[in-house]
Design a protein around this nucleic acid. Structure first.
Length: 132
RNA sequence: AGGCAAAAUCGGUUAUCGCUGAGUAAUCAGAGGAAAGUCCGGGCAACACAGAGCACCAUACUGCCUAACAGACAGGAUUUCGCAAGAAAUACAGAAAGUGCAACAGAAAGGAAACCGCCACGGCUUGCCGGGGUAAGGGUGAAAGGGUGGAGUAAGAGCCCACCGGUUUUGCAGUGAUGCAAGAUGCAGGUAAACCUUGCGGGCUGAAAGAUCAAAUAGGUGAAAAGGGUGCAAAUGGGCACCCGGGGGCUGCUCGUCCUUACUAUGUGUCUGCACGGUUUUUCACGGGUAGAUCGCUUGACCCUGCCGGUGACGGCCGGGCUAGAUAAAUGGUAAGAGCCCGACUUGUCGGGAUACAGAAUCCGGCUUACAGGUUUGCAUUUUU
RNA sequence: UGACCAGUCGUCCAAUGGUGAGGAUAUCUGAUUUUGAAUCAGGGGAUGUAGGUUCGAAUCCUGCCUGGUUAG
C-alpha cells in the first residue's frame, strides 16, 4: 500500500515537540544542500510514523517568495519519495520527528535536488536499521 | 525605427498527483498592484475618564470632499522657466512677544559706525595735521538699515517730491484665501527644516488586542475523614492491654495472622481525658489559569452595470454579485497543445522561455518605493515618401 | 505584529552648522639595517543614497537603502 498524501498529521506542528527537536535532536548527517535532524518523540500519541518540518532560514533567504518556493518544492519531493523511509520505520515500529534544513542556492533545480534528497532519505533509513 | 517620460494593465487552456477552505456528497473556490516599506489616517477591541491647565507629539494659504488624513479636488499667493500664451514647484502662520546665531573678511553684522572718500572750518612747513559734518561713490561680505530719478545742500541724507515696492485704513467684488480702486504712512535687514509663540488636533495600548471552553502538574478557597467501647495505670503524668469497626500486607478467594488508625512545640482553654485552633495526609467540590481548542476572521466606509446631482474630488438611487482565510502558516510538481517572446537557419520549421517587481497573517482609505513585456499618450532624434 | 537606534578612510573612533573632515591602526613609498622587525619621514584613501532648508550641511528636515537592538 503506497500513499502519496501529506496530511497535517505528518507535519510537525506542536511547539514543544519542535523545541525538543532543536534542543535534544540527534545531529545527523549533511547531504549537499540538505541537513537532517531527528528525534524520537517522548509521547506515543502521534498518529503518523514520521513528522517532518522544513526549515529555510530567513537569515539566508531574505525574500519571502524565495523561502516559500523552496519550502514548497522540498515538500513536493518528500511527498513523492517518502514511502521507503516510512516502510522501514513501520517494520521496526519507530516514530520520529524529522527536521529538514535547506542551505543551497536561491534558485534550485528540481530534478537534481530530487536525486540528492532521495539518496539522503535512503541513507537515513539504513542508519535507522542499525540503531535498532 | 529605436530612445526617454507618464498613464492604465499585470496573458493563459486542458489533464493528472497533492495542499487549504466550504459542502452530507457530487463538486466549487484559492495571493497583489503594489499583498512590500510600516510613513500617515480610521474602523474594531481592552483599559481609563468631573472640568481646566502644564508637558510631549503632530500639523499650518482658502474653500470643498471624506469615517478620517500629512490624501484628493477646485482656487489664491509666491518662486522658477518661458518673448508670450502658459507650465512646473511650494514644510505657504508669526522675526514689532522674548532668547539666541551669523566663521572668515570688513570701519560696522543691528535703533550702528566711518577704512578709502566728499565737504566747509582752524592751523601751518601749501599738502599735510587737527577737531567737526556727511554717507552719494569705492572697498568687504551670502547679507550693509527700501529702489530709481529729481529738488535741495558747503557736501550730503525720505530731509522733501514723483514713480515703483512694502505696511496699513476705507470702499467695491468674492463663501473665503485674495484681488481692484482710493487714501494714509517716510518704512529697524536675515534665520523659526535655531529655541520659541499662536491657532487647530491627539486619553492610552494594539488582533500575540480581546471573548468563550479547558487536560496534566503545582498552588489557592471551602467541606468531610483520621473512629467507638471497656478495664487498668498515672499528676515530675497524659500511657498500656483487650474488644468492635475502617484501611493495608501475606493468598486466586475465604479463614487466619501481622501492621496501621497520624502529629501538635514550654499553642490556648479546661481538667479527665476532652474541646478549640494549627500541621500533614486522603477524598470531594469550587474558582483562577498554562498547553490546547473555538470565536475575533472576512458581508465590507465591498465589487459590477445603469441613471441622477456636482466644474471636480465625490455623493445619492435602482438592480445584480459574494470574490483567500491559513496558524511552524495552504497556491506546488509533471505532461500536452493554440497564441506570445527570444535565437538559429530559412520564410515555416527547429530549439528555448513562461518570466519583471514580488507572497495575504485583524480589516479598510491614502502616501512612498520596486517593476519584464506588450498597449495608449506626449517629447525629442534618425531614415524614407 | 509593533517600538527604537545607527550608518564617517580597509578597521576602530573623533569633529558646537563655518579653515583643506581629525586621530589610532592597516596599506604604499623612502630612510635606517647584510635582511627583516621596531623606529623616523612622506603619500594615497572616507561623511550610505536622492532631494530640500541655509551665504554655507558629516551635522538640520524629508523620502529611500543597509545593518542592528528590543517587547510578547
Amino acid at each position: 500500500m503506497e500513499e502519496y498524501k501529506l496530511t497535517k498529521a505528518e507535519r510537525l506542528s506542536n511547539r514543544s515537540h519542535i523545541d525538543a527537536l532543536f534542543k535534544k535532536g540527534n545531529p545527523s548527517f549533511h547531504a549537499a544542500p540538505f541537513r537532517f535532524v531527528w528525534i524520537k518523540p517522548e509521547t506515543s500519541e502521534v498518529d503518523s510514523f514520521c513528522q517532518i518540518i522544513i526549515i529555510c532560514p530567513k537569515k539566508r533567504y531574505k525574500r519571502a517568495h524565495t523561502r516559500n518556493r523552496i519550502r514548497r518544492q522540498i515538500r513536493e519531493i518528500y511527498r513523492q519519495n517518502k514511502n521507503p523511509l516510512l516502510e522501514k520505520l513501520k517494520s521496526v515500529n519507530n516514530k520520529i520527528a524529522l527536521g529538514i534544513f535547506y542551505q543551497g542556492a536561491d534558485e534550485m533545480d528540481f530534478q537534481i535536488t530530487k536525486d540528492i534528497f532521495v539518496s539522503a532519505l535512503l541513507k537515513l533509513a539504513s542508519n535507522f536499521e542499525k540503531n535498532t
